[in-house]
Design a protein around this nucleic acid. Structure first.
Length: 386
DNA sequence: AAGTAACACAACCGCCAACGA
DNA sequence: CTCGTTGGCGGTTGTGTTACT
């Protein structure tokens, strides 16, 4: 029908945001919340399309965004999650509080992908590129295992989307809460900022109070008086975050409510014929939904200070992955006098071709692969899923 | 010092799913 | 059920910065 994209309207500004524009957007959202992004620009006095405003807010201006270098743990988590989820940046971002999907995506594309490539590992499949060398041993099995996990995770995401819809329908009273679907990530962020507000305040964005409403990395805003509650789309989009409440063992204002809801929803999953969830659950041998388990798996390497929620102790499972991918990668990096500042990319300039690692490369690939498997196998419940 | 290449990151674009009329 | 609207996601591009020649 030829509908114009919002930014195609004449007179709307594009390109980098100016400090003045940022200030306008911040001030407006702080006072009113964003409400409808479509109508926000005119109300805020911005000559931008709503989409541009939303992106600017979610990727840059939000107060709960952590900027700056990625920590080792974060790198490790990204790699691990990417091995499981692929380019589902938003899903990955849910496990990296205070990081946006865009930031993670950029970091992956500019740093991690190259690093893996240099190690001779396909950044897409996370398999050694010279796969033939490994096809005869456990590597192929490992690949199948990971593939299985990926399929499972896809199903999980689908289930969670369904779950969120059902939850929304059944939890009308929650609508009156400020943000009924506030995801675990945001919750943990909030908990963290509350428990260590002295230095846990978001940096880089002035104007919005610390310890105020924090949102998930991809969340929409609910600021000030909550007159602009989370939208239906927010509920929908953050379904997987929502279900992760289930896995939270920490205290919240009323975690029980959410947990029960989640468990009920869990039992109510009926549409996913491809997976017998009850069987899986039984197999796990735990009353905890396997989303929680997955969450624990994925968070197992996240004990760094940027996980405020770890005060719950939920993620302190035994894990061999502390010395996992990233340390492996960085170890290699260190061998080549790489700094943490992306100096690895300069190795080629020093005469290395980046290919032809030979036996050393094979060994590294094996270690890399082993580390993924360790990561997988470190499931606290020894889930038969994997 | 100037020109060029490479890098890093912000922003844009197109598509899609969900919702409501 | 259909269709328009909206917001979100992932891929890609644009732009400023840094490193190199």
């Amino acid at each position: 029908m030829g509908r114009l994209a919002c930014c195609e309207k004449v007179g709307l500004k594009k390109g980098p945001w100016t400090p003045e524009e940022d200030q306008k957007l911040l001030a407006y959202i702080e006072e009113h919340g964003h409400g409808s992004w479509r109508s926000l620009p005119s109300k805020a006095g911005l000559e931008r399309c709503g989409k541009s405003c939303r992106l600017r807010w979610t990727n840059y201006l939000r107060p709960d965004i952590k900027r700056g270098k990625f920590s080792l743990q974060e790198e490790q988590t990204i790699i691990q999650l990417h091995a499981l989820l692929g380019n589902r940046w938003s899903a990955i971002a849910t496990h990296l509080p205070k990081r946006t999907d865009n930031e993670i995506k950029n970091y992956w594309n500019t740093h991690l992908k190259k690093r893996l490539t240099k190690m001779g590992i396909d950044p897409v499949t996370h398999k050694p590129k010279n796969d033939a060398l490994h096809s005869s041993d456990g590597q192929s099995k490992s690949a199948a295992k990971l593939s299985h996990m990926a399929q499972w995770e896809s199903a999980r995401l689908e289930a969670e989307a369904r779950l969120a819809r059902e939850s929304k329908l059944r939890s009308q009273p929650l609508k009156h809460q400020r943000n009924p679907s506030r995801p675990l990530v945001a919750f943990k962020s909030w908990m963290g900022s509350s428990s260590k507000s002295s230095n846990g305040s978001p940096k880089g964005v002035p104007g919005i109070g610390n310890g105020g409403d924090l949102e998930s990395p991809t969340s929409t805003l609910t600021l000030s008086d909550g007159t602009h509650g989370v939208t239906n789309n927010s509920v929908r989009r953050h379904s997987k975050q929502m279900i992760e409440f289930v896995g939270a063992s920490g205290s919240s204002s009323d975690p029980t409510l959410i947990k029960q809801e989640g468990e009920n929803d869990w039992k109510g999953l009926g549409g996913l014929d491809s997976i017998n969830f009850e069987e899986i659950k039984d197999g796990i041998g735990s009353t905890a939904p396997f989303t929680a388990i997955f969450h624990e798996i994925t968070m197992s390497g996240l004990e760094g200070p940027w996980i405020p929620g770890d005060t719950t102790g939920s993620y302190h499972m035994e894990s061999q992955t502390e010395e996992g991918f990233t340390s492996l990668l960085l170890k290699r990096s260190g061998d080549r006098s790489m700094s943490d500042d992306g100096g690895d990319d300069d190795t080629d300039r020093g005469g290395r071709t980046g290919t032809g690692h030979g036996a050393e490369s094979c060994e590294d690939n094996k270690n890399y692969w082993d580390s993924i498997l360790n990561f997988v196998n470190s499931s606290p419940s020894e889930s038969p899923l994997f």
